[in-house]
Nucleic acid binder design. Structure first.
Lengths: 249, 249
DNA sequence: CGAGTACTTGAGTCCGTTCAATCCCAGTGG
DNA sequence: CCACTGGGATTGAACGGACTCAAGTACTCG
């Protein structure tokens, strides 16, 4: 149940993210640089904390495989899940730019992560403006997602919020190449859904039951099967994110 | 009540932000580049929309003077305020990186903005990695703030939320050089506070009244006077942001 | 002086909470 | 093989925080 550095990491030339067509391919030049920037790989088991709030980790990561989530907690244990992380996402950027992490990241499923050295960030900006631009792109996209979540938690009803979350996660899973357009299995517990939506577990359960009665989702095997993503998005009054190709590092 | 391009903009050498000591000074080299990157100035009256959701503006801006706020709305008019913008903040970055803006920005007080051309962003990354790094720093900081807002709206009680917001805005005003440590005047209406906290106006009013009874704030002249910022932060269980010097563009 | 906006306040309702059981299932150990 | 354990899901009941509705005050501005 511990994380471990993988002895023989994948070569960038056979990076699993290369095969996902939502990602913009790297040029040879870019790939070579990223290969030199990569310092290793990390594997995590479900439930493990990859990054801890307050830490000033020397690393940042790109998800190669698996699901995780970012969250913050108050002193008394109240927890808010901020976003989910999927293959292609970068985590730990805040720790690299600011003084320390303001949130934690836990693994939801077994994960594999690509490790980079925070200390080399500035030289990346100097030597590869294109990749630096991509990192800023990713940061802007994260901000855009947080904006929508905030709108959701602040102004949508419980049912709309739940519908939004399921449609959102479906969309992200499709774009990360781990689900198909018509359905998806999301490895989340109702407890996590509650902590994402800002609701209690009890009311989350009752709300999800309504979505299940509508046949929009089905709950099984400790997770959520999304059956009608479009209907969910419509119910939530949510426009899915852009489908343009996105960069990854 | 209209925006207008200012005919004779301030020279960067006498930028009002230079005198605020929370900001890291530019080198001569940086200042010269920014001066060439700056394409003009814009002035806005209160209530004016500076940037509109969905737009793909050719500009991005740095606030030189005044308050504004970022927000999103649902089709039926429900509004969520995402964050406030103060001198030194950059707005429109999303429009520059992604396809279009996912939120709007309105002026709260008279504002003066420094205008940059979106089309020159990439060359900025190529020619001035240090400034590119600063832009990414600003984006990370915005993300960090949104994380805290999300925690607030999702998991804090109404009273904690209100206390957090007032402490947060006080902190930001101090850091932007427009308020002192012991108190501040915030030019926000209760309607805006409600739309920031995800509460109704009525309940926001009753909650603010409690903070006023505690003598933590006082409401007057269409705004909030923060009297005891530390007590507010403590009530909200909030650790103020870093006090390290921050960059600006 | 009328109109508009912001703020206040009370009353009643409802959405979402807490408390408290219960069920189901997977894993563990005797 | 089965009792025991623990996490997740489910349900009912009662409470309460936050909502809506509805008035009323205070102030600014034309």
């Amino acid at each position: 149940m511990d994380s471990r550095i993988i002895a023989s990491p994948t070569k960038c030339s056979s990076c699993p993210l290369k095969t996902i067509n939502a990602f913009r391919p790297h040029t040879t030049n870019e790939e070579n640089f990223i290969a030199s920037f990569k310092s290793g790989e990390l594997s995590c088991e479900p439930g493990m904390t990859v990054i801890e709030e307050g830490a000033h980790s020397p690393h940042l990561y790109t998800i190669l495989e698996g699901w995780g989530f970012r969250y913050k907690t108050l002193e008394d244990g109240r927890r808010q899940i901020l976003n989910y992380v999927l293959p292609g996402d970068m985590i730990g950027l805040q720790g690299a730019m600011l003084e320390h992490m303001d949130h934690s990241v836990d693994a939801l499923t077994p994960m594999r992560l690509c490790v980079f050295e925070r200390s080399r960030m500035f030289s990346l900006f100097e030597k590869h403006p294109g990749i630096a631009f991509d990192i800023t792109w990713l940061a802007s996209r994260e901000e855009s997602i947080l904006d929508e979540h905030l709108l959701s938690v602040g102004r949508r009803t419980a049912l709309e919020r739940a519908a939004y979350l399921m449609a959102f996660l479906h969309h992200r899973a499709v774009r990360a190449g781990i689900a198909c357009e018509s359905s998806a299995f999301l490895p989340v517990t109702q407890n996590m859904v509650a902590d994402t939506l800002g609701l209690s577990i009890v009311h989350t359960n009752k709300t999800l039951k309504k979505l299940a009665t509508l046949q929009f989702i089905r709950w099984r095997d400790r997770g959520c099967e999304v059956l009608r993503p479009k209907a969910l998005a419509e119910l939530a009054k949510w426009d899915p994110l852009s489908r343009q190709e996105r960069p990854y590092i």
